[in-house]
């Protein structure tokens, strides 16, 4: 993590990991998924996490999303040690601080687009009228205001992912965690989603952390991070990468 520029260093650190390790024990065999990851992610940054499958990418995501606890090491989200939180506080954290975007959208099938968007608000204690209003403006932001009453099954993959993005923004989170958001979409729709994410990152100052295989991501993200065998292989700024990729190819 030496590659970050001094300009970025001055910004607020939103996620920080210290010596993050995670190992799974199954039938007596210990698998080390993460073997010491130290990284600081800054507010408003758009960062891509790349790595082959089995590299520990997903485990890393679960750790920084407050979904799983590390075997050793620490995760700070907004300077709060995740390991010290109770179940209720964790729920609060997931509800208010982090927005999740999944590869398979994970919309609740029996809810309309608007209900999907307002559910996290309800969990966060927002009143129904205010939730509706905010939900509609979020749907407008992703360009689906007219389809607020449609259920997921009545929408295309791209539209579903956009509803999912609106949902992830429901409680104004500081961090958006995207798990291969474009993997299930065709090229042009994927492009739209990426542009949307970029727009959000710039306009709302949301930190976007994206696990991806999509090389177009390199064009829009601020930093790139490669994980291999549970370790950070490389971290690079966007400008540096373009040259190197060219060099490799």
């Amino acid at each position: 993590m030496t590659t970050s520029s001094s300009a970025i260093d001055n910004r607020r650190v939103i996620i920080r990991t210290v010596e993050l390790r995670k190992s799974f024990v199954k039938k007596g065999v210990t698998t080390e998924a993460l073997r010491g990851i130290d990284i600081s992610i800054f507010q408003g940054e758009f960062i891509s996490v790349m790595g082959p499958s089995g590299s520990g990418k997903s485990t890393f995501f679960n750790m920084i999303g407050g979904l799983d606890s590390p075997t050793s090491g620490r995760v700070f989200i907004d300077e709060v040690d995740v390991a010290q939180l109770t179940a209720e506080e964790l729920a609060y954290l997931r509800c208010h601080k982090i927005g999740y975007i999944f590869q398979s959208y994970n919309l609740i099938k029996y809810m309309t687009a608007l209900e999907n968007v307002t559910t996290p608000m309800a969990f966060g204690g927002v009143g129904p009228d205010e939730a509706r209003e905010r939900g509609m403006s979020l749907l407008e932001l992703v360009g689906l205001k007219a389809r607020w009453h449609h259920r997921p099954i009545e929408m295309s993959g791209g539209q579903q992912q956009r509803v999912a993005i609106a949902r992830s923004l429901a409680n104004d989170p500081s961090v958006l965690l995207c798990d291969e958001p474009t993997a299930n979409l065709d090229l042009s729709t994927g492009q739209e989603i990426l542009e949307l994410l970029q727009k959000l990152s710039h306009e709302k100052g949301v930190t976007v952390i994206c696990a991806t295989h999509d090389h177009r991501m390199m064009d829009i993200c601020d930093r790139l991070m490669w994980i291999r065998d549970g370790k950070i292989e490389r971290i690079a700024n966007r400008g540096d990468v373009r040259i190197e990729i060219g060099g490799i190819e």
């Binding site: 700070f76 907004d78 300077e79 709060v80 040690d81 010290q84 939180l85 109770t86 209720e88 506080e89 729920a91 609060y92 954290l93 509800c95 208010h96 601080k97 029996y110 809810m111 209900e115 559910t119 309800a122 969990f123 966060g124 204690g125 129904p128």
Partner: peptide, 25 residues
């Protein structure tokens, strides 16, 4: 280090819980 500022998550209202349940059914 900053102290933990995360508040506890409130309970969802009973009516909303029922609504979600009925929709699911």
């Amino acid at each position: 280090m900053k102290p933990i500022t995360t508040a506890e998550q409130p309970w969802l209202s009973f009516k909303r819980t029922i609504d979600i349940t009925i929709d699911g059914i």
